[in-house]
């Protein structure tokens, strides 16, 4: 096991992403930040907080569980569901930023796009991830990346967040 990002690096990455989001969207007025449970939701909450303090306004945020939309459900035992909380503002005609911890095959994001479309038609959908580890199986890419991390397919990338894991760090396991 080796540590890829420590607490300070995670914080710096999120701050940078926040700046990029503001720059790309020319402000935050039309933004909705949506995290993908479990760790994506915590990252979304952190991003929302940073964005609010940078811009001095309240940012709409929520979470979106993708489990029921996955196309690989049959390959594993059923998993328990995460929370879905769409902010009152809704997502229709909004600039939605989906937030997840690790971008890998792209299947979670595909499921998230399906799930999101059930709640309305966003103006744009953007994707922010803490780690992009490659090995995409679908034509999906991230708009904001904390760290690009070349990996082997059989390695395991574990994002730990203090909200649930008692510390902030990103580890990689199974590296030869």
């Amino acid at each position: 096991m080796s540590i890829v990002l420590d607490q300070a690096e995670i914080a710096r990455a999120l701050k940078r992403i926040a700046h990029e989001i503001i720059e790309r969207n020319k402000g935050v007025s039309n933004l909705v930040i949506i995290g993908i449970p479990t760790r994506g939701s915590f990252l979304a909450a952190r991003l929302t907080k940073i964005l609010s303090s940078l811009e001095g306004v309240e940012i709409h945020s929520g979470s979106l569980d993708t489990t029921m939309y996955r196309d690989d459900l049959r390959n594993a035992a059923p998993r328990s569901l995460g929370k879905t909380e769409i902010p009152l503002s809704g997502v229709h005609d909004r600039d939605v930023v989906l937030v997840d911890d690790v971008l890998f095959s792209g299947r979670t994001i595909r499921a998230a796009l399906d799930a999101l479309s059930e709640h309305g038609r966003p103006k744009t959908v953007q994707l922010a991830v803490l780690i992009d580890r490659g090995h995409r199986e679908l034509p999906i890419r991230a708009d904001y990346v904390g760290k690009n991390l070349p990996t082997n397919r059989n390695e395991r990338v574990q994002v730990c967040l203090s909200e649930i894991d008692n510390l902030d760090q990103v580890e990689i396991e199974g590296r030869a």
């Binding site: 489990t67 029921m68 939309y69 328990s80 879905t84 059930e118 709640h119």
Partner: peptide
């Protein structure tokens, strides 16, 4: 029961149907 609670919340939104 927890799963049912989450599904009950989802079905209260405009989402009436899941592709699962």
């Amino acid at each position: 029961l927890d799963t049912a609670a989450e599904l009950a919340r989802v079905t209260e939104t405009p989402v009436k149907k899941l592709p699962t």
